[in-house]
Simulated scan of single mutants.
Amino acid sequence: MLGFQDPVADAIGLLRPRTVIGPSLRAVGDWALRFDTFLHVRIGGLVRGTCWLILEGQEPVLLQEGDTFMLGNPPPYVLASTLDASPSPAESVWARAEDGFVRIGPESEEDLYLCVGHIAFDDSNAALLTDLLPPLVIVRVADPHGRRLALLIDLLATEVGVAAAGGPLVQNHLAQILLVHMLRAHAGRTDRPTGWLGALNEDGIGAALRAVHADVAHSWSLKELAEISHMSRSAFAQAFKSHVGVPPLEYLIQWRMSLARDALARDTLSISELARATGYLSESAFSTAFRRVVGSSPAQFRNQARQPPRSATNVAAGRE
């Protein structure tokens, strides 16, 4: 049986997030660091000081103490003390890290203190979240969620700088909590995004989404979902597509296939068991739906997922 509970928790669980935090940056004087493109999310915040965030295709943003930021599938970007500072590759500077810190310039009580990290997701389902994110989300410390996020950044920075038992585990959990709060802040804005993330704030549509996630094997009809939302079928269908981007029953199919991809990749259920768990009366009906959405049969997808990644040899040899 596949277990589901809440759309945000379900989606993040399927994404299998892998978090790498730090090193933190301490810097004084003129400096600039250029970061390469990264999949899927970068996240960070200023514990102390100010700096510029310069993202290709966007106006430069001045970050101030307590501000947090999230980058979705970001193009190359620069963090800098001033807009005219000449950037150095961040990778080479990061390689000089000691005790969880990178220092630029002499140690000072007035230095900038920046905590950054990245979160990578399982490629097969990463689009569940990354398709909903703009390239840049800034939450100011004065925003409704800002103080809470600033506290999380401060806690995260403390964990990076202390070699304590369980440190990586704490960092991983704090980063995921930070991600959820950033998503809440983003979805709660007046210019909130389309997709399930923003739709959760709509009482009727959110209720329907939660019902689907609570029982994905149920043979949901448009009439049932509209009743849960306390709307007529036509009004519900129009509102759902407006907020989520696809019709209700298409969303159900896409969510079922996301669950199926995850189960096949981990080889936790047979194809016939997976068909029943995702609400299909036969293996052939499930396979037809899977091929339409994913582009391959369930068996082909599972066999491909069993193949070791190209870098597996290097990882085993300790070269990555």
Rank of each mutant, 00 (worst) to 15 (best):
S86I: 05
Q307G: 04
G318S: 01
R319F: 14
A235T: 10
G167P: 05
V216L: 13
N201S: 13
V293Q: 01
F301W: 08
V180I: 02
P7W: 00
A214K: 09
E59N: 01
T37I: 09
R210P: 10
T50G: 13
Q5V: 14
V61E: 11
E110Q: 12
R310Y: 01
P75F: 08
T37K: 13
G13T: 14
A95V: 03
S258D: 08
A175H: 00
G44W: 09
I21L: 13
V212L: 10
S272W: 10
S86K: 06
I177S: 12
L264D: 10
G146C: 05
L46C: 01
W94P: 05
V212A: 02
R310L: 01
R319K: 10
A237D: 13
A90N: 12
P308T: 06
S270H: 12
V116D: 10
A237N: 13
D111I: 05
G188E: 10
V20M: 09
N172R: 04
P248I: 14
A80Q: 08
V216H: 09
A120H: 11
W220N: 01
E109L: 04
G167E: 11
L63D: 14
L132W: 12
Q58K: 10
P106T: 15
A27I: 00
R306F: 10
P135H: 06
E320Y: 14
K241D: 15
L259D: 09
S221Y: 02
Q307M: 08
F290S: 00
M70E: 05
T313L: 13
L264R: 05
G161C: 12
A289L: 02
G245I: 02
P89Q: 08
A175G: 00
L62M: 12
S284R: 14
S270Q: 12
G117T: 01
D143N: 02
G66S: 03
R256D: 07
V78R: 03
V294T: 12
I138R: 09
P309Y: 15
A277K: 05
A165G: 06
L152K: 05
A275M: 13
L46P: 01
D36C: 09
E250R: 15
A239V: 11
F286D: 03
G66R: 06
L200G: 12
